[in-house]
């Protein structure tokens, strides 16, 4: 599905060169739940941006579904993001004055044509993250966990091939984090491919594959045989609270 070969990224600020990625080879297969971890400055966010076609690599090759993306122009990248990718951000990045439903409908606005069943699909996506009762709430009227679930519904609504999540639990308390991860685990169980960046080892251990970056290189790449089930932890947490 995703094949990176020798991906490099160097930022230029004036005459100062800052190499961030020094040659990443990575193969993401359909149905994987991949966590990218690493200390700050290791390049994990940059890598996610490149994977999400939000940024271009300085060098190397990126095949998405077998076609090279590094030669595509801006509009073609936007088209691919719209059709094949979904994003979840640390700070949710919902439109503050729009309702949950309108936020979830946002990707359709840029889909070239607005599908007839858009509203139905948006409701379905919100129901999938357990927010069917929050359709007409605005972000300010919801908790952080609910906002992040709206963001997941937005990432889900166009039925993407990969969902990218950049520190999705970074702004959440433990319980909301577990809820969000358990939704992502559920989506993955249904076959959805997910790539997640985190610095939280507990979150990393809830994924099925863990890639560690250090100084712009892949340091380790391991399969997690038995990922922690967020749902079970959530139940434990709830019982303890009683």
């Amino acid at each position: 599905m995703i094949k990176l070969k020798g991906i490099t990224k160097t930022y230029y600020r004036g005459k100062v060169e800052t190499p961030v990625l020094l040659g990443i080879d990575l193969h993401v297969r359909p149905g994987e739940f991949l966590a990218i971890m690493g200390p700050s400055g290791s390049g994990k966010s940059t890598l996610l941006h490149i994977l999400g076609l939000l940024d271009r690599p300085s060098g190397g090759s990126y095949l998405l579904d077998g076609s090279e993306t590094s030669t595509l122009n801006d509009d073609e990248l936007a088209r691919l993001r719209n059709a094949k990718l979904g994003f979840v951000f640390q700070a949710f990045h919902l439109l503050p004055k729009s309702t949950a439903l309108d936020n979830v409908l946002l990707p359709f606005t840029y889909a070239g044509h607005f599908p007839q069943d858009a509203a139905h699909r948006a409701r379905h996506a919100l129901a999938r993250v357990g927010l069917e009762h929050r359709l007409h709430h605005r972000p300010g009227e919801m908790s952080g966990g609910e906002c992040q679930r709206v963001a997941i519904a937005r990432a889900l609504v166009n039925d993407p091939e990969v969902i990218f999540a950049d520190e999705p639990t970074g702004n959440l308390d433990q319980r909301s984090s577990l809820e969000v991860i358990s939704i992502l685990q559920g989506l993955n169980a249904e076959g959805r491919t997910i790539v997640l960046v985190t610095h939280d080892t507990a979150v990393g251990c809830m994924c099925r594959r863990l890639v560690r970056l250090i100084y712009g290189r892949v340091d380790s790449d391991e399969i997690i045989a038995e990922p922690t089930q967020a749902m079970r932890q959530l139940q434990t947490l709830m019982e303890a609270a009683k």
Binding site: A78, L106, T109
Partner: peptide
């Protein structure tokens, strides 16, 4: 800016 970023991320082109 972040709103524009979100719109770009979900598929808005520059001209959108």
């Amino acid at each position: 800016a972040y709103e524009i970023g979100v719109r770009r991320a979900v598929g808005a082109r520059r001209r959108d």
